[in-house]
Simulated assay, not measured.
Amino acid sequence: MKLFLFLLSFLLFFLPSSAQDGLSKNDTNYYYRYPHKLVIGPLLSKKNTVFAIDPKNQAGPLRYSTNTPTKLGISVGYDWLSVSASVGLGTLDPDYKKEKGKTKSINFQWAVNGQSVLADLHFQINKGLYLRDQPDPSFGSGPYYVRPDIQTQIFGVTLRKILNSRRFSIKPPFVYDTWQQRSAGSFMVGGEFIYGSARGDSAFVPAGVSGNFPDAGINKLHYIMFGPTLAYAHSFVLKNHFFVTLVASANGDAAQTTEQTTSSDKKTRWYFTPNLSMRGALGYNTSNWELAASVISNRFFIGANEKDIHYQQYSDQFRLAYIRRIHAGKTIPTVMNWGRKIIETMGFGFLID
């Protein structure tokens, strides 16, 4: 925990001191901002989180996935704050089936899409997974192999400074308060710190296929990862309104994994690993409304003590939104300006500009 606080403080203090150029006024020949408009509209969203065990032989990976339905909700934003609320569609989602078990989740992922900063804050706890892509497994008692005992966690932060924030904005596909009218892109630099874990009451690998997996008795692991981040983003704009935005982010992390077997034997290993984060979106944008479909994918590659196997934890989030930009009245601007002053006084204004 002390290491986490030290690295988080380093990233937070590094970025504001080096991001002042990004806080200069944007070039309106490239994009317009509407921070004083209320952005509101319906959305559809779907998220899956996966914990995978992948041997190097021909056995193929085991992918334990959450069982969560597509959600219908509403997105509301003004200036620096954007929130959404939604309800699950249940069996209206063909991918969601009760036979896959029940997933209990605490999922707080805050994406900071500022003028000069792109940040991901991770806080995920998922309990109750099923084996994806293997319906009616021979070693299961039902149509799906369900593990209500497996729990996964991811905590951490990834921060990136946008170097060309005067001409490129990350906001249009994800925050909806900006209109990018001309094609532009930007490199980004930063860093990340991630802590994650997985545990089950019994071994992750089912007994029926344990012969295909080295160290098949593992039922607990935790890991830490930290290192620099390099990213590039580009928005391709056609006739001012149609857009396609692509973002690729790579991290070169130092990492440590500790594994424990059902007999309480522990092994620890240090290593280097790449991690990937990707975003993509397409849509149509105007001064008064926007239609956008987007996907955000974060992938963490976790080394094992047995070099013939590795783990992955990753999440994919899909969203379709129709947003209107309307007059905000008097109360909302007053409250949000008050909140902005508090954030700026605390020294975190660079995250919301």
Rank of each mutant, 00 (worst) to 15 (best):
I40W: 01
L15F: 07
L62V: 06
N29Q: 09
K56Q: 08
T28L: 07
A52N: 12
S17C: 13
P42F: 02
R63E: 15
P55V: 05
L38I: 13
P35V: 10
Y30L: 01
K46Q: 06
G60C: 08
L23Y: 08
R63S: 14
Y64F: 14
L23C: 01
N57D: 04
P42A: 00
S24I: 04
S65M: 07
R33D: 13
Y31V: 06
R33P: 04
N48K: 13
K47R: 11
S24D: 11
R63I: 09
S24Y: 11
V50G: 01
Y30E: 13
I40C: 03
L38A: 07
F51T: 04
A59H: 07
G41N: 05
A52Q: 15
K56Y: 10
Y34D: 04
G41P: 03
R33I: 13
N26E: 13
D21T: 12
Y30G: 06
T66W: 05
K56W: 14
S45Q: 12
H36L: 15
L44I: 08
L43F: 02
S65W: 00
N29A: 10
G22P: 01
T49H: 09
K46D: 01
I40E: 02
K46V: 00
G60D: 06
D21V: 07
R63T: 04
A19R: 00
T28S: 13
S17N: 14
A19G: 15
Y31I: 07
R63Y: 13
A52D: 14
K25F: 02
P16W: 05
L44Q: 00
P42E: 00
L43Q: 06
T49I: 14
Y64M: 07
S17P: 05
K46W: 08
